[in-house]
Every structure is written in C-alpha cells, then in structure tokens.
Simulated scan of single mutants.
Amino acid sequence: METYLDSVSAMGRNVICTGMGNNGDDALHFGGKLENREIQEIELGIGPYEPALNLQLWKAYEDEIKIYVENPSGIRIGPLEERMGAQRWRAGNTNLLIYYGKPAPYHVTQEIYFEFLPDALYVDSGVWKLVLQGINVKNGDYFLWLPGGKTLNPGTGFYLPRVHGTLTIPATARRLISVGAYDSRLLSYAAFSGRGSSELPYGKPDLTAPGVGITAPRTGGDYGSYTGTSFAVPFVSGSAALLMEWGIIKGNDPYLYGEKVKAYLRRGARPLPEYKQYPNYEVGWGALCVTQSLPQERIAPSTDRISPVT
C-alpha cells in the first residue's frame, strides 16, 4: 500500500495526508536486536476470553534465526521450520498456524505470521513466550506486532512494549504527510498518537494537529466530540488545500503540491511547550500553523504558546 500511495503522490497536483494511528500507548509493539548465538525471550500476555489472535514478526530476510513458542503451562514448540505454506503446531489447548513469508519486489524484509486458534472457545490465557535464537545473523533487528484497532481484550499485549515505531500503515509511506495528534487545550502531545522510529529511513510524523475533543458532524445532523489522529488529519488536508489554492489557483506558485506542500508545512510548524528538539518521534516538526507556512507571507517565527490552529 505504501508503494502504491507513493506512486500516486508522484503523479502531480495532489497531496495525500494520513493519520499516525492511535496505538501509541497500547502494548501492541515490541522490537529488539538479536546477535549471533544469542537467545532472547519475549513475553506476551493473552487475556481471558480471547477468541483468536495473530502476531507478526518482521526481520531482515538474510538473518537466520530459530524460533520457539512456549505456552503458559510451559509447553514449548519448535524450532519452527522455514518453508512455504502453512505449518500447524499445537500447544496446550491452542493451535498455531505459522506462515513464513519471502521478500517482495519492494522490500527485503521477511514476515513470519502466527495465528493462535483455540481448540474450544478461547486461546489459552496467561504468559506466552516467543524465543528467538540467532544462528547466522547479519542485521539482527526484528519487530513484533499485535493487531490494532482496539480489537484485543484487556490483558492482551507485550509485557515490555516499545512505544517508538507505533505508527500504522499508511503513515509509513514516505511521500504522504503523516499527521500526529496533540491536545489543543493543554498544548500537549496526545499519548495515543502513533510515534515514529529511528528504524525508518525518514522522519515521521511530519507534523501534528489538534486531535483531542474535536467537534465534528455525526449521523443524524448533530455534532459530537471525537478523539484520534483521524480527526487531526482534516486540519492538515484542509491546510494543504488552502496552500494549493494560494499557489495553483491564484497563480502564486503553479508547482505548490506534493512534497513542496509538505516542506512548507514542516517549516511553518510551531513548537509545543514540552519539546526542545525538532523533529522528534512524537510531534515531528511541530504543530500545524498555516500562517507560518505561507511561503511569501511568513511572519517572524515565535516560540510563544500557540493557539490550537493558526
């Protein structure tokens, strides 16, 4: 999806904006670095009454590692076999379907997909362990993901989650404007907003916009209060449209689209009080400010407290 959206963004006269996702403070992501002959154990809690579960492990394809899975009662399966097609294992009252992926034309990484399926109604609850053993490791970085979207029961998640890298697809696309959320009343970062990571070859998010307690229309013609990065994105897409109108429609800059709009919005972004260094993994280049982003009508930069959107 990221490759497709980057291609569309390069076609001209468009700007694509997306949210960073709302998994920033959820225990859904873990990552680390594995060395040769090193063994690491990752603990994953599965709460009661979980009807099914899937887990994704991403690593460099060139790294050869052994993988074991241990259920809460201590039953260990593995090492898993790296082969095409599904392989089925059983641990206690839970069946595991495991799929090894291959690199794609657009990336050199490998996905290993785990599906937890109960024998009866629910997956065995308790502390599961994923054991990784380095055999022939050249890179060593790995990343683990549980499903987002508030689909998991309380108690299901990694015991030592990693907050960095919690942005979700398609915010990972290079050419998109990826938008985080902040609380415009408190002028503070919204903890649920997905974060970027040093593992990405480019900085994300690009900037942040109000995403807490946003008044918006709802079904039936009334209004409601909403929270999430999906409600921060419209501030930025509307601002991008205003810049494109100023540049393309009004004749001030016929090439004001795509990465150029992103560059102007990044430059015009204002600081939030809790941050000294920009860009950063939480708010990117700062908080949206259209006034500062106008290329020929910029006012002197200010470090004063900012209004929700200027």
Rank of each mutant, 00 (worst) to 15 (best):
S7H: 13
P254T: 10
L160T: 11
P210H: 14
G268R: 08
P201N: 12
L117F: 11
A91P: 13
D183H: 00
Y61V: 09
N93D: 08
E297L: 09
I112W: 13
P279M: 05
A10Q: 12
L117C: 14
L256T: 03
I39D: 07
A232R: 04
E64C: 05
L97P: 04
A52W: 15
S73V: 09
A173H: 07
A171D: 07
D26E: 12
Y255W: 11
V137S: 01
S7W: 14
G140K: 01
Y202R: 00
S193R: 02
N93C: 05
I77G: 15
N136A: 15
Y264S: 06
A263P: 03
L80I: 15
G284R: 08
D141M: 06
D253E: 15
S230W: 03
W89S: 02
P118L: 10
E81T: 15
F158Y: 02
S73G: 04
I306S: 06
D253T: 13
E81L: 07
D183T: 03
Y106P: 04
S239L: 00
I16R: 02
N14P: 05
V212Y: 08
V261L: 01
H164Q: 08
T310N: 12
V15S: 11
Y122G: 01
G155E: 10
A91E: 07
A86Y: 13
T219Y: 11
A10N: 13
T215P: 00
G74L: 00
G286P: 02
P154G: 06
L242G: 06
Q40D: 01
V283R: 02
G228K: 00
A190M: 09
N139H: 13
W128R: 01
E282H: 11
Y142P: 15
M244W: 00
K59C: 00
L80E: 00
V236N: 04
Y113V: 14
L53P: 07
S184L: 01
I135L: 03
I169L: 14
W128V: 07
L187G: 12
Y226P: 05
Q87P: 02
W58R: 08
G228R: 02
P217R: 05
I42L: 06
Y68V: 07
D26T: 14
V290T: 11
V212M: 06
